[in-house]
Design a binder for these strands. Structure first.
Lengths: 186, 186, 186, 186
DNA sequence: GTGTAATCGAGACGGTACGTCCTGTCTTCGG
DNA sequence: CCGAAGACAGGACGTACCGTCTCGATTACAC
């Protein structure tokens, strides 16, 4: 309705849109975030640069759109029977996401950029990928907890988040132990 | 010793060194990390660009040298009497550092860059500012703990670290509560 | 006939045609030839770009169509009684045309473009605005001359043409003197 | 002296300067004035674009510097014995220059551009290539003429100039006849 | 003192990405 | 089929910064 009314002119090309998102995905793996350029994205996608700028302002925006869906899916956990198993499975997924997954690499790059670029910070603030995924798990595992969900989230995610982002080797992490630690607090 | 050997030629100018470090400090506050350039640093310092490149490879290196001493000092806590008070004071200092301090801004910028730049990651790995400061406090407050210090560090720092870096408002944090949570685990 | 055959569909819009020609006239005065673009012309005329391209290939073509009629009229001189007066009047008109008239500005722009663009050269070759106007005057003033008309044309127009196009100030020209010079040769 | 005093920084590269001028000369012949771009010139010269922009503002300026010396030389005529021979030789050189010479093509392109670009007009006004060369010949051939040199110049050059620039075939020109016509006026 | 040598500020060098603009084509809807 | 609108791929624009390179000038140590 909002879309179909007074539309005039050539409509946006879906083909160009997915080509750009795919190019960003590929380039992130091949050359990394820092080496990615708007020019390079456009060329890789076989798309004019103006077309890229018409729909996204920065490579951060494209990366966000390209990675958000994957991220959400990778952090969604099947119920595992017990609270401890649930939390363990989630923390394992979190490590996998942050450490190895392309979507996680994108997330870390964006979060890094957000530390010194308010525009990116705002972009990330619009969709709290980690917090949302953790809330689902916590509410399922501890429906009766009286701890505010925000604080519980930080306690659950924080240690792993710090461990990975500060460059420590995730091999030194044990998800089950962390889950047990968490249950002792909450 | 390293310096006194058969050195010949004009020695490094201490004046140029501090001018560069000062310029980086100033520019970080004035224009932010992303907008800082090697060219801009050299001009602000009144120094030739070659002189900058001669002693540092990247702006990350300069920033690191400029901020490390401040960071260490801001995270060093006087013994406060009780373990809970000690830990609370440390977490308060940590929030101040990450959230408001220029040195903390530098640290966050570097940590962000480290997520997609291995050279910066290595730089940070060389000096574990957060981990070192936390270890001191933990060993003082809990001399008898049998939990590995690395894990204890992650449990202590993690929630606050995640809270701030993910863009949440530190006003929602309560250091004493977090310290109590921590003591329940360890 | 050409028009009356089995034409089908919406006929060419006269309104669009004159809007484009008017836009070109306006833009030539307002921003000059070099700054004119096909995009700008279409927008100024309130016309689709495709409509412009459908009927003209280049801005030179539009400008030519827009200025030709004016040029012809500005260079047509009423008989003035004597050959000398006729020629003087013509040379004065020529200076006015080349120096101040919008149509003259268009002509000079096109002639300039023709020096490095064969397509424009061919366009101008199709209608010899200056030569045709001079021939009329010369044949009227000197019906018995045995000098080839082409050479006479060059002798009459050349000095003024050179003067103006090489950027000299037309104030330094005296049409009557030039007419006398011309009569001495022919 | 003026140059050698307080110079600081790396001096301008003569090698880059001649590479650019040579590239412009080549490109003018190969692809023509209109198709020449600053980007193309820089690439052809194996030079950074900034280097081109540092020393010249427009392709017109480069072309002017590249062609001026050639033009001057091509229009300098050896004394031929008689005024008529002198003037004939000059007019023949003028036709050669305007019609066939690469330097002449450059001149025509610049003169064309000058018709709608005041910056180029000013550039050409700074060095009156045609006028200067004609003055030399006229003053040598007619040392006692009382006609102002500017007017004599226009009478001498004008017809040929008009003939060539308006796209007429120079085969139809006869230099000796034009020289005779000129002598009849002056 | 007189080299010798590494430093300094300055600024030009060849490159490359930036974000904008225009090109000429295309794809939509409405007359 | 024409027309307005506007997105498309492409490519030049002029600018900024990259990291390197030459300059002349300075400043130490070794002779």
């Amino acid at each position: 309705m909002d879309d179909a009314r007074g539309r005039v002119g050539r409509p946006r090309s879906e083909q160009a849109r997915v080509a750009v998102l795919q190019a960003v995905d590929d380039l992130l793996v091949e050359i990394g975030y820092a080496a990615m350029t708007m020019k390079g994205i456009a060329e890789r996608a076989g798309v004019g640069r103006q077309t890229v700028y018409r729909w996204w302002s920065t490579k951060a925006e494209i990366l966000f759109e390209a990675g958000a869906a994957d991220a959400e899916q990778e952090l969604a956990i099947e119920p595992a029977g017990s609270p401890l198993d649930d939390l363990t499975a989630y923390l394992e997924a979190l490590v996998r996401f942050l450490w190895r997954s392309p979507a996680g690499a994108a997330y870390r790059a964006l979060l890094g950029e957000a530390q010194h670029d308010p525009a990116v910070a705002e972009l990330l603030a619009g969709k709290d990928i980690l917090g949302d995924s953790a809330r689902v798990v916590i509410e399922r595992a501890l429906p009766d907890s009286r701890m505010p969900i925000e604080r519980a989230t930080a306690l659950l995610i924080g240690p792993t988040f710090f461990w990975v982002l500060s460059g420590r080797d995730p091999a030194g992490l044990d998800a089950r132990t962390l889950a047990e630690d968490f249950l002792r607090q909450v």
